[in-house]
Design a protein around this nucleic acid. Structure first.
Length: 278
DNA sequence: ATGCCTTGTCGCACAAGA
């Protein structure tokens, strides 16, 4: 089961690149962020024609998240619990089942939080608290669960090319990084870190100042796996090449492959060995 | 460097992003 996340920075602007990448990467599920569209204007038919089901939690002009899936999208939750006043479309969650593997998938667009010293940063930290609370309750279900998306957090110095450039930025504040670590410490696995990704693996390069050509990137799109999901992790990778396409998003896709444990693989190896003919 | 791009908007410049 291949599950991806991609901040596409506008579904209308990416109406060529997203299908192109779907045909190439063939994910079972993709969580999209910054669709920047109301539900009614989302080009659902384009993706249904490609065999995807679509669930959208949209908003006019800004934010907006969606899930595309080759398999049925069940039990959809739109919006992050914990604040009825919050109208920003940044959270969507659903259960998707492929053969004998059922996974609960959350797609998030965590607030940017800039500039510091404003209510935007306060909102970011409050949103992260709510995410932690919701994640804590989800973990009690002890099912395969993952939170994929644009976290707008640079977890560690190694996750950006030039840490000094980010010292006054909400993405790299100690409070932001602490909140991310608290989430991790509930028991999540950072899929990319767990698969020994190469140094300088980034997911975002600013449109400005030639950031892409200079590889001045940051890693802010993450896939956090519950213990039950982490047990199934096969691969995690970043599709960096899409950043070089015409009319690119400033983010690139991140994806994991999860595989259900078979009866054979969960059986003690001694039994398997002794049952083999010599 | 309050800039640099890119997106969406009841545009005709602006807010927001990171």
């Amino acid at each position: 089961m291949k599950i991806a996340t991609w901040n596409i920075n506008g579904i209308k602007a990416r109406i060529d690149n997203l299908p192109k990448w779907l045909r190439e990467a063939e994910p079972d599920v993709v969580c999209l962020q910054e669709v920047k569209s109301i539900d009614e204007n989302f080009p659902t038919a384009v993706f249904e024609d490609m065999g995807y089901s679509v669930a959208v939690h949209g908003q006019k002009s800004f934010n907006g998240v969606a899930i595309l899936s080759k398999h049925a999208i069940e039990d959809v939750r739109r919006g992050l619990p914990g604040d009825d006043e919050d109208v920003q479309a940044r959270y969507i969650e659903a259960r998707i089942t492929v053969e004998d593997l059922s996974v609960r998938i959350a797609g998030i667009y965590l607030p940017n939080g800039n500039p510091l010293g404003t209510e935007k940063f306060t909102y970011k930290l409050a949103w992260m608290k709510r995410l932690e609370a919701h994640a804590r309750s989800m973990l009690q279900g002890e099912e395969a669960f993952l939170i994929a998306g644009d976290y707008n957090v640079i977890p560690e110095p190694e996750d950006c090319r030039k840490p000094d450039n980010w010292l006054d930025d909400a993405l790299y504040q100690p409070e932001s990084r602490d909140a991310y670590r608290q989430l991790l410490h509930l028991g999540f696995t950072d899929a990319l870190r767990a698969t020994n990704a190469a140094p300088e693996t980034y997911t975002f390069w600013d449109y400005q100042a030639g950031a892409w050509n200079k590889n001045n990137g940051i890693r802010i799109d993450h896939m956090l796996l519950s213990p039950q999901a982490a047990d199934l992790l096969q691969t995690c990778a970043v599709d960096k090449h899409t950043r070089a396409w015409e009319k690119p998003s400033d983010h690139v896709p991140v994806w994991v492959k999860l595989a259900a444990k078979t009866a054979a693989s969960s059986m003690p190896s001694g039994d398997a060995l002794t049952s083999q003919p010599v």
